[in-house]
Design a protein around this nucleic acid. Structure first.
Lengths: 347, 347
DNA sequence: GTTCTTGTTGCTCATCTGTCTCCCACGTCC
DNA sequence: GGACGTGGGAGACAGATGAGCAACAAGAAC
């Protein structure tokens, strides 16, 4: 257990050497030539005294804090933020960095979000991660540019900043592909009504995947509603009321899929025997707990957090130039998570 | 937008005064005698230049960082951590503090958790919040004691540290009370099997509340299973198979309630017409999205985070002595959240 | 009416926080 | 008299803090 009132100076006195020497030894300074005996003595005394470096003083001197700022939207609103934080925290810890986290709101004014960044800047974080709650275009506070920064799960409007986002199209293709692979030929899509990248990209992938499989992608049924359980329910009721009722349903997210489950139950349709369902998001609380378990596409929140942190640290340490990556966002894949909601269609 | 290369010195030069004067003005030092004109000039020049204080240097000198460490378990595993973080972040921000967050695992070794605390200590946080994932007894790293600390959602084993926990009994009483108020006389409890405070306290409150209402609390049916959806399902099947089938069900948590919903559906029991259900936790993803919406008891995670932060800051600023509060944990109430899963029993 | 005292105002100097880092100073041995 | 081996001194990082110093005014003593 370390006593935080012990400084390098105390170690120096106790070891009978100069402060400089202690610093050299403890930091293993390359050019410092100090005898093994002295090194040993300094180290053992430092340990005895429970010396721990004062990172503040270090940071002041070296202009490096070893801290990364993370401004995250909706920390408590979705489980997504938690995964981003976790990915970032583990990546940061692995390289000796720590995280300063500030919660913000996507709907907060630009000034208030700028103030959040300002707080981080005053504390001299080495870099900033800016994470949004869902994949969209954000307007970034201007002061973000003053240190290396990476955007997580969004792209900046008109912005030239390194960003990492999920592969919406690939995920949607995997979802639809799983339905096709199970033998379904009548596949419907329950889509979101928001104007976000996911809405159009998943729709596009849905149609394209069907078409590439020799089906009529353009004619495949699509119903849109707000992306909540109730919306999913309503859209599913409509889509399942068609005379060419789909046997496979791709849902914009797990919540909508949950609504689809209810619609199916009300119609006496058993999942997956009568209807196969795929979701999106892999919100474990929902997907794993529905009955049967929902096969869905996972969003790589953990991975995005980790990727962003890795590259941010690389940039901070001069191993990378973020500007090179800024023009195009990095796309991380969305893997299919298989559970029990897909089966072959009835003959 | 502030340029972080501007220091107090630059302001001093531009204003034609000494560094000391700038510091005095900007910090509104009480005993400093400086003319209003000079004050005005300093302030306007500071603003013009976009001066922002270097909190590192400040902290080094004043021995106050304005940072609070938060070590939290399972940041991504439950939504609970997010609420604690949010409560802490908002309380901290309101008083000019920021949060350094470190994720840890409840199952991690004591040494590894001690290292987490050590990282915070090296950065000279003013205080530490230690949050667990669920209400239980934890063994705390010893170095936690070196700065003011507050434990969130747990009590320390044998520990003398200020803690804040949820009112398990009160919450359970509210849940059972709601069932009784609706007119139910045959009420069952689906309990957890883990040996945590909630298990025994909720059971106790369940029986006591029934007894106080003139029913036979000791004879009321209780079935225990692992506190997941499947466990809830199994326990509900058992409890609903009794000949004196309960018309009201209190479930240990929302996940178990979700299982009970399925059991009821399979038995052709409609909620709430044939069976009223109350959960615990208010996990919105589940409770609000089940059909009908689940009436449940909310755990005060946000409030605990905020309470802990408030009191921690008070202690840091010398306004409170945490030792006074250490002997007994503070208990925060668990309010009932009414949705649509309770109705009067059929005649 | 001049000088001295005392008080007030307005601001600055020196020092401190804990650590790093460039540069220099010894001695010793060829 | 260089080269080598060992180690130390003195800023610097950015700001905080309390003692201290001019300058001036009012009042007092002569």
């Amino acid at each position: 257990m370390s006593n935080k009132n012990i400084g390098i100076k105390d170690v120096a006195v106790a070891a009978g050497v100069s402060v400089t020497t202690v610093s050299h030894v403890l930091n293993e300074v390359a050019y410092a030539r100090i005898s093994p005996e002295t090194r040993g003595k300094v180290r053992s005394i430092a340990e005895q005294l429970g010396y721990g470096p004062n990172r503040l003083a270090q940071a002041l001197r070296t202009q490096r804090t070893g801290m990364l700022g993370l401004v995250s939207e909706g920390i408590a609103t979705t489980p997504h933020a938690g995964h981003i934080i976790l990915g970032a925290d583990e990546a940061a810890k692995a390289r000796g960095y720590n995280l300063m986290i500030i919660n913000t709101s996507g709907s907060a004014s630009l000034e208030s979000r700028q103030a959040d960044v300002e707080a981080l800047l005053e504390r001299r974080v080495d870099g900033i991660l800016y994470a949004t709650m869902y994949h969209r275009n954000v307007e970034l506070p201007a002061n973000l540019g003053s240190v290396p920064s990476v955007l997580v799960d969004s792209v900046a409007t008109g912005g030239n900043i390194t960003a990492v986002i999920p592969d919406e199209e690939g995920g949607a293709r995997a979802a639809v592909g799983a339905l096709l692979a199970a033998g379904h030929t009548r596949v419907g899509f329950i889509n979101n009504t928001d104007d976000v990248p996911a809405t159009s990209q998943r729709l596009h992938a849905f149609r394209a995947t069907l078409t590439e499989a020799g089906l009529d992608g353009d004619a495949a049924p699509v119903e849109s509603e707000v992306s909540e359980v109730q919306g999913g329910y309503e859209a599913a009721r409509r889509i399942l009321a068609r005379e060419d009722r789909p046997t496979g349903l791709f849902c914009y997210n797990d919540r909508m899929a949950m609504g689809a489950y209810r619609a199916a139950a009300e119609l006496g349709l058993s999942i997956p025997a009568d209807l196969s369902v795929v979701g999106f998001d892999d919100q474990e609380l929902i997907a794993a707990n529905l009955h049967p378990g929902l096969t869905t596409v996972a969003l790589p929140h953990y991975e995005m957090g980790a990727w962003a942190t890795e590259h941010l640290i690389d940039a901070v340490e001069g191993k990378t130039d973020l500007a090179l990556m800024a023009p195009h966002p990095t796309i991380l894949s969305c893997p299919l998570v298989r559970r029990d909601s897909i089966a072959a269609p009835r003959q």
